[in-house]
Amino acid sequence: MTTDGTAVKNRPRKKSGNPWLEAGHRLKKSKIGMAGVVIIGILLLVALFAPLLAPYSPTEQNILFRYQPPSSEHWLGTDEMGRDILSRIIYGSRISLRVGLISISLALLMGVTLGLIAGFYGGFLDMVIMRFMDIMLAFPSILLAIAIVAILGPQLENAMIAIAIINVPRFARIIRSSALSLKENDFIKAARALGAGDFRIIVNHLLPNAMAPLIVQTTLSIATAILEAAALSFLGLGAQPPSPEWGAMLSDARSALQKAPWVATFPGLAIFFGVLGFNLLGDGLRDALDPKMKNA
């Protein structure tokens, strides 16, 4: 991406110029994609300015005022420890975003490295790496995550590692298939003829050209990562109290579902919108980046 980026500046802007810019235009036209952008934008702002937005501290308890219904004092009511639910959701956005971004970055790093190596070199190395990925894919992902957290110990950091690991095979597969088809192209042969080494070819030529599907997958994976983190926390394997993680909030609200439904409703909605935002953006990006959709 960086090589393309620098190249762009010297080129005159034409309609058929930079494919990334074109994709950006297409994304702007896509209503779904823009809805995703807006939701994620709000989420980012909320996370960034949490201390300014939250009316109370997310961990401040008042156990004599548990399960207060929504009121002017507590807009979304209070939870089982008498904490302000709105403040907890606001601070929770930081956790969910962090989990999504960090765990998927890790997955991206590992998956892309493995996938490129497998795709580029092929042969025995390819077989070993990809069969291992197949084994990982054979497990239901959440089960694998639970097993990993069980080994590492229940903690948000470990949950992130677990989520990163279960997402590796998808990235590895995508990048490998791109690498397989790309490496037969003439421009790769040309680069090799000019004396470029393996590393240079992989990083400067293969990777940038395999970017489009990767971006889509990354965006969609952040959505599932948020969901997976919430699920792990729901099971008590992720964020530990008093951390205002959305899934953990949902889990703690369970026992009062009949009496105080708002305690479960609002964190549930927060998860819903967070996941929806990244999914919409992912869909929008897929349409925008797909060359077949170019003139549609």
Partner: peptide, 25 residues
């Protein structure tokens, strides 16, 4: 009857005197 909530409340009380409790189960 609700050990997790009691533990969280104790965690909060102790945080007010500057002591950090990590909850485990």
């Amino acid at each position: 009857p609700q050990p997790k909530l009691v533990a969280q409340a104790i965690q909060y009380y102790l945080s007010q005197i500057g002591v950090k409790a990590n909850l485990k189960t």
